[in-house]
């Protein structure tokens, strides 16, 4: 179920990976990146989301943006399932380096080793990095 269904007319379905590498706030990449993810799903493409480096902070529980007076868009990650975006991966090394575990994250993810991540990337047709 998505708000809009789009089609480029070709019927081609490609594997799109979105690589989220930045902290949720401080720059606009995470917020604007999510827009592309949702539109890609609306085109019925095969979407995977990867959180790596500071990107793992995008999924942290207990986000509160009142103090910095910017929009808290972390709810959107919980809504991804409604857009048929169910492939969420987190890089194990990035998680460990920041003292985090799956328990600290607001959504269910698959944690991948460096090798598993490398293989997943190799399978993709399009990798877009934010």
């Amino acid at each position: 179920m998505s708000d809009m269904d789009m089609d480029d007319g070709s019927g081609v379905v490609k594997k799109f990976m979105f690589l989220n590498r930045k902290a949720p706030h401080g720059t606009v990449y995470a917020l604007e990146g999510l827009e592309v993810v949702l539109i890609t799903a609306a085109f019925d493409q095969d979407v995977s989301l990867v959180f790596t480096d500071d990107g793992v902070y995008q999924l942290m529980k207990g986000m509160d943006t009142k103090g910095i007076e910017v929009k808290d868009f972390s709810k959107t990650y919980r809504a991804l399932e409604g857009y048929d975006i169910e492939k969420l991966y987190v890089d194990s090394t990035s998680l460990k380096a920041r003292g985090l575990t799956e328990e600290d994250l607001i959504v269910d993810v698959t944690v991948l080793s460096d090798d598993e991540m490398k293989n997943l990337m190799a399978e993709q047709d399009v990798v877009i990095s934010f």
Binding site: D8, F16, V36, I39, T40
Partner: peptide, 8 residues
């Protein structure tokens, strides 16, 4: 959508 189309 114009970006997604490029990918497709």
């Amino acid at each position: 959508g114009q970006l997604v189309e490029m990918g497709i």
